[in-house]
Design a protein around this nucleic acid. Structure first.
Length: 217
DNA sequence: GCGACAG
DNA sequence: ATCTTGTCGC
């Protein structure tokens, strides 16, 4: 599979999108809604869940899901091929546009500077941040008291520890910068993970129950 | 050639 | 990610 023209194509596409990904400050004080995104699978199909989380109410205020075919196997570095189409479809089912997307996976902490989180943010034209459970690319090291994810001489993310000490690798997605990510983490604390937990739960439940979209009231 | 490799 | 219950250990 490594010499496949399909894989070659998606790598070239990723290299084309990479320079379009924007690093810029985000006005964190005006981020009111976060959107947690995750995908669950069953064989050749996947279900993406998009959970809208209110920062002030600290709860889920809306959710949507999208079920669809997944045609390619997982290839490290090309997670976006499997998950971005489903996530974007789920986001489109929300009645509101989220202020910030939280995505399972990396953003700029990627060998081609274009991880899933960055690509979804770019294509949705919405600020985004990646939250992964393990490293893919870059080096985690202490800088000025902060455990950063560094690629070359650039800080592309930060290591976050939840209350149980588990590490999460948070990296810049799209339309955010390092400072913005630090402020988001500082202000949300463990609630940074809440929308993602809920998205994880929803995608798995929707997969099993066969349900999709929002349940009838 | 060898090892690493998000979900 | 997913296949899968109880079980060994801090």
């Amino acid at each position: 599979m490594s010499g496949s023209h399909i894989i070659d194509f998606f790598i070239r596409l990723q290299l084309t999108l990479s320079p379009l990904i924007k690093v810029s400050p985000l006005d964190v004080s005006r981020v009111e809604t976060l959107c947690g995104l995750d995908v669950s699978y069953s064989g050749e199909e996947g279900v993406a869940a998009a959970v809208l989380w209110s920062r002030v109410e600290r709860r889920v205020v809306e959710s949507a899901a999208f079920r669809g075919a997944v045609l390619t196997p997982y290839v490290p570095g090309l997670l976006y091929v499997r998950e971005a189409p489903l996530m974007l479809a789920a986001i489109r089912r929300l009645s509101r546009v989220p202020d910030l997307l939280l995505i399972d996976g990396h953003g700029l902490a990627h060998p081609r500077r274009a991880g899933l989180a960055s690509i979804v943010g770019l294509l949705a034209d919405t600020p985004s941040i990646g939250v992964a459970k393990s490293m893919l690319y870059g080096e985690a090291r202490l800088e000025e008291g902060v455990e950063c994810i560094v690629v070359g001489d650039e800080r592309v993310g930060v290591v976050f520890r939840d209350d149980r000490g588990r590490r999460f690798y948070v990296s810049l997605g799209h339309r955010v910068d390092f400072g913005s990510v630090l402020r988001i983490i500082g202000q949300l604390g463990s609630d940074l993970l809440s929308p993602l937990r809920e998205a994880h739960r929803l995608s798995k439940n929707a997969l099993r129950s066969g349900l999709e979209g929002r349940p009838a009231p």
